[in-house]
Design a protein around this nucleic acid. Structure first.
Lengths: 154, 154
DNA sequence: CTCCTTATTTTGAGTCATTCAAAACAAGAC
DNA sequence: GTCTTGTTTTGAATGACTCAAAATAAGGAG
């Protein structure tokens, strides 16, 4: 027989990274990580929606807790666009930035031109010890420039 | 007799700028703007607290409405630090950035090194029309580096 | 494999920031 | 001064997230 879906290579890799981060490997945690890999820039609610079909009784509180644990462990990155719930993504450690469409909310990653975090240094840090620079570009995505109605919004 | 406090020069300037922005000049609007000049980086709640002693029956809903109107008119700038309520400031149009202490929440303005908005250009805008780059530097303020207890927090 | 300890998730309720809607009110053009 | 329309008040509701206690499951010990 073929391997069960539970032991495919992506799942295994995920389980290993959770373990390596010092966290217990649980079914909901793996499911959240997979949902996040398939849907970058998801809100806690969206993650819950993606995970529910797979894992029936998953509460949204659990998802919040899992997301907080994974973020704390450095497996997930969180960012808070203005006027939107917090969004999460698996792409971590590369100090990339975000392009946000102020009309439809679409998000695109942009590589950091400069390099490692903090990719920028403030002109006058006023005694602050700066760890990271969060850069968010606000604009209109191509669809929102072209069309008057945001039909492309999911 | 001397001039009444209501007609001092700051108030007059404020009234004029509100008018110039196409908005009606009202007592609460002027009070919010003054509170914001005296307390940059204030949340809606803090503004309400500052305005209340002067203007007894000001509702927090009114403050939200006023802040939204002033922000829309370009007289006030709003920004949303992660994990904090939205903050407002009068310093507009100069594309400055913010230094945020991740421990005590202290905020400092930093002048933009580059220049006019958007002060940065993403490496690959992917079709987005970028208007502005929001830059937030996360770090620890001097007090939070020096002391183990954040006694300086107001 | 089974038990045990402790981390994690569920369940249920609560909080904070913010928004909505309708009625009362006030700015400022005439 | 009056009238029109933009503002604020009043009262209620929503969304995003957090807290706490009880139930459950991960994974090391035996």
């Amino acid at each position: 027989m073929t391997q069960s879906p539970e032991s495919d290579s992506r799942t295994d890799t995920l389980r290993q990274s959770i373990r390596a981060a010092g966290l217990r490997v649980t079914v909901p945690r793996v499911a959240v990580l997979e949902a996040l890999q398939d849907n970058p820039h998801s809100s806690a609610e969206k993650v819950t929606d993606k995970v529910r079909p797979v894992l029936k009784g998953t509460s949204s509180q659990a998802v919040y807790g899992i997301l907080a644990a994974l973020t704390g462990a450095g497996l997930v990155r969180r960012f808070d666009p203005a006027g939107s719930p917090a969004l999460f993504e698996c792409r971590v450690g590369d100090n990339h930035h975000h392009l946000v469409c102020i009309r439809c909310g679409a998000i695109k990653d942009v590589d950091c031109v400069i390099g490692a975090a903090p990719c920028l240094t403030p002109s006058d840090a006023s005694g602050f010890a700066v760890f990271a620079a969060e850069v968010t570009f606000n604009g209109l995505c191509r669809e929102c420039q072209d069309f008057s109605t945001p039909e492309h919004i999911d």
